[in-house]
Simulated scan of single mutants.
Amino acid sequence: MKSTLFEVTTGRDEVVRDITRQCAAFVREAGTDGLLHIFVPHATAGVAIMELGAGSDDDLLAALRDLLPPDDRWRHAHGSPGHGRTHVMPAMIAPQTTIPVLGGKLALGTWQSIALVDLNVDNPDRQVRLSFLTDAG
């Protein structure tokens, strides 16, 4: 298994950040078939496969605000107002996903991209772990 860790600065706003380029570059080096596993080692972030850049990013953030309002209802209450919701979000948008790789290329659909979803405005620095698994190990 080949693995790497890279940093993503998400800033102080809720974001859907495209990480497809970094993922594609990682598997391109291998040039073979396998599985790319993407993992975000954080309790308040997730990974989504979705269309990006056509308003879907903002739609996802709006839907998450509707489902998980940033108010004082959350028992997990430290940090910024509504911070507890960021600890619930990974149950909906998991902190990991796996994508097939064929000939060193991500086997994504035409409009699919890989996104880091981060609602935590208290932590602007994130890490993403990429692991590439092949028959050879």
Rank of each mutant, 00 (worst) to 15 (best):
G79N: 04
V16P: 04
K2N: 14
G104H: 01
D122G: 03
L119N: 04
L133Q: 05
K2H: 09
L106M: 07
H76N: 09
D72G: 09
P69W: 04
W74M: 12
G103W: 01
D72M: 05
H76K: 04
G103P: 03
D66S: 12
F6D: 07
L5K: 06
L106K: 03
I114D: 00
P124W: 10
R75G: 08
G79L: 13
R75D: 14
A107N: 07
A48P: 02
V40W: 00
G11V: 14
T20A: 11
S113A: 15
S56F: 07
S3M: 09
F26N: 02
L61D: 09
E51D: 12
L35N: 03
T10P: 03
P81Q: 13
E14Y: 00
V8Q: 01
D58M: 07
D18N: 14
P100K: 10
R28N: 09
G11S: 09
L68R: 02
I49C: 05
D118A: 06
F132M: 08
I38K: 01
T98R: 05
R85Q: 08
L36P: 01
A25L: 11
A91K: 04
A45D: 04
D18H: 09
E7N: 10
G46H: 06
G84I: 15
A94P: 00
K105R: 13
H87R: 08
E7D: 13
G34S: 09
H87P: 06
V47F: 00
S131Y: 02
A107G: 01
T20N: 07
V101Y: 00
P100H: 11
S113V: 02
P70L: 15
P69V: 15
D57S: 09
V101N: 05
Q112P: 05
W111Y: 11
F39G: 04
S113M: 02
R75L: 15
T44H: 03
G109I: 14
D125Y: 06
V121H: 01
G103H: 03
W74I: 13
F6Q: 04
N123V: 11
V15H: 01
S56I: 13
R73Y: 01
E51I: 10
T20K: 03
W111M: 08
R28S: 13
V88G: 08
A77P: 00
F26M: 08
T98Y: 03
S80E: 10
F39T: 08
I93M: 01
L67M: 15
E7Q: 09
D72F: 01
V8K: 06
G79A: 10
T4Y: 00
D57A: 10
H42P: 02
R21M: 02
C23R: 05
E14C: 02
G104I: 14
E29T: 12
T4H: 03
